[in-house]
């Protein structure tokens, strides 16, 4: 290649390289224009958000049955407490909320209390008909003199305000279920189950 041609080729390429400035300018403009949230350079958070219940359901979604959350032979006024452990098994901090609904004819006679961070304890005996469940400590997130929803499509929020969970952390949800003292006689022998759906969102999500 002659020196002249080489020089022209080099000059041409140098001119073309100016396109980088256009690119940089465009990038800067568009970033300013479209986005108000600043993000750390080079970090694309492909983190993992993973909510677990009672140590189970690692990975996205999932449902489980808590076989120890069971009580039979309830007479009106008796109650039962059980703690559900909500865990963050992912790599990013999350905030969680929870909703619940019942299924079965006993549902309308049940009254619920949810205490986040509470410890569950039970006293009394079924023989005496004086069982009482208690949650100690924690913050009451739900307590109502009415039944919760019996409709899975429109459940009742039992942890309505987001509660934080750092990565690797867990919190107990102490749940008390009580058979209303004025439950009607038609509920004799009735049964029900309750379903709790816990939703975790990435911290800082709107």
């Amino acid at each position: 290649m002659s020196r002249h041609r080489a020089r022209r080729s080099g000059l041409l390429r140098a001119v073309l390289s100016l396109g980088l400035l256009v690119g940089v300018g465009v990038s800067g403009t568009m970033a300013y224009w479209t986005d108000q949230a600043t993000v750390t350079t080079g970090q694309l958070a492909a983190g993992r958000l993973d909510l677990t219940l009672n140590g189970q359901l690692a990975g996205p979604g999932g449902s489980t049955t808590d076989t120890t959350f069971a009580v039979g032979d309830l007479v009106p006024g008796e109650s039962f407490a059980r703690a559900i452990s909500v865990g963050n098994a992912g790599t990013v901090p999350l905030d969680y909320t929870a909703v619940s609904h019942t299924n079965g004819t006993l549902g309308p006679g049940l009254r619920w209390t949810v205490v986040a961070g509470g410890a569950a304890s039970n006293a009394g005996s079924s023989a005496n008909g004086d069982r009482t469940g208690t949650c100690t400590g924690g913050t009451t997130t739900f307590s109502s003199a009415s039944a919760i929803s019996a409709n899975a499509a429109a459940p009742t929020p039992v942890v309505p305000a987001r509660r934080p969970l750092a990565a690797g952390a867990s919190e107990t949800l102490c749940v008390i279920v009580r058979l209303d003292p004025s439950a009607p006689s038609s509920l004799q022998g009735a049964t029900a189950t309750a379903t709790f759906v816990v939703n975790g969102v990435q911290r800082g999500a709107p």
Binding site: V26, S27, G28, M30, A31, W33, D35, A37, V39, L49, D50, L51, T52, L53, N54, L57, P60, G61, G62, S63, T64, T65, D66, T67, T68, F69, A70, V71, G72, D73, L74, V75, F80, R82, I84, L94, G104, L106, G109, L110, G129, V177, L179, A183, Q188, G189, A190, T191, A192, T193, A194, T195, F196, V197, V198, N199, G200, Q202, A205, P206
Partner: peptide, 25 residues
């Protein structure tokens, strides 16, 4: 060149109780 988008990331877990039963006199 690019701008950034943020998509909310969440996970849902469901737990059901075993049957809760009332007494029959």
């Amino acid at each position: 060149p690019g701008a950034r988008a943020w998509a909310i990331f969440d996970d849902t877990a469901t737990v059901a109780t075993a049957p809760l039963a009332a007494h029959r006199v």
